[in-house]
């Protein structure tokens, strides 16, 4: 009996496997890919509709997985309402996944990667729910992932810096991290804390099993490198947040520097990520 039920569930789930959207008639290799945009958000009810609208306009070929990390302002309700927007292109799905408690950014992003791994997406794009990333840059990012044949491409604000006002001290912090990461990975990294990234199948599966917790972007690079993966950067412009305050204050910035630097040192000694799921 229970086996039958399970089968029914599996069959039904099978029918929701993502399909290559093939809506790009211009012969782009993207047409063959199943792409999901992971949008982690926490208390972004004011921004999420705007973010989803922009994604719908600029990436009608990609599904979206909104990960509501236990928000208390009805973010997932806002996301669901926006997902029902009649102006949204059909055939494209917006999934809303809600954590019943707040896990932090790392946990939210990893839920997205687990979703992508389970549903068999070819490419997963990380895209912040606060509106600082540009939907128009998603396609170039995915194209760069394909063209360069790496496991992950991240958008860097500092290759051709424009359109993002960084505080001097914050910029210095990021530069210091970039230097550290470049030394450890022996790859040139200019913006290790960028949360705007595209990951291929191998990186998706790795991150579904292992993903760091706080300020995870930098550590994720190290993790990928240690697992034998490759990454690259491409220049992007970012906006400052649309509404509300950034989650990183100056004091938190210092904490972040300390934590991430320590994580980098620890990562050097840690055993490489195993294929053993469920441990982390």
């Amino acid at each position: 009996m229970s086996i039958q039920v399970q089968d029914a569930v599996a069959d039904k789930a099978e029918s929701h496997r993502p399909q290559p959207l093939g809506r790009l008639a211009d012969g782009s290799p993207l047409a063959r890919l199943r792409v999901v945009v992971i949008v982690p958000c926490y208390n972004e009810a004011d921004n999420i509709a705007h973010v989803l609208r922009n994604l719908g306009r600029h990436c009608p070929w990609a599904d979206v997985a909104v990960i509501d990390d236990g928000s208390r302002d009805g973010t997932s309700a806002a996301a669901r309402a926006a997902a029902r927007d009649p102006a949204a292109p059909d055939g494209r799905r917006v999934f809303v996944l809600r954590h019943c408690a707040n896990l932090g950014i790392g946990g939210a992003v990893q839920t997205g990667y687990r979703f992508a791994a389970e549903r068999g997406y070819d490419v997963a794009v990380q895209f912040d729910g606060d509106g600082q990333h540009r939907a128009a840059a998603v396609r170039p990012l995915v194209e760069a992932l394909l063209a360069r044949g790496v496991d992950q491409v991240s958008g860097s604000r500092f290759i051709n810096p424009r359109g993002y006002g960084q505080y001097g001290i914050r910029l210095a912090g990021i530069k210091l991290l970039a230097l550290l990461v470049s030394l450890v990975t022996r790859r040139r990294v200019t913006d290790p804390s960028s949360g705007f990234r595209a990951a291929g199948r191998r990186a998706i599966e790795l991150f579904a099993r292992h993903y760091p917790q706080d300020w995870p972007e930098t550590e994720a690079l190290l993790l990928l490198r240690r697992a034998g993966g490759s990454f690259a950067e491409m220049p992007v412009a970012m906006r400052s947040r649309r509404r509300g305050r950034t989650s990183i204050s100056f004091r938190k910035g210092l904490l972040m520097m300390a934590k991430v630097s320590l994580a980098i040192l620890i990562a050097i000694f840690q055993s490489p990520p195993s294929a053993d799921a469920g441990k982390e």
Binding site: V96, L97, R98, A101, L103, T111, E118
Partner: peptide, 10 residues
Amino acid sequence: IQEQALLREK
């Protein structure tokens, strides 16, 4: 928590 979110979505 992640598993629960994924399962609920499904």
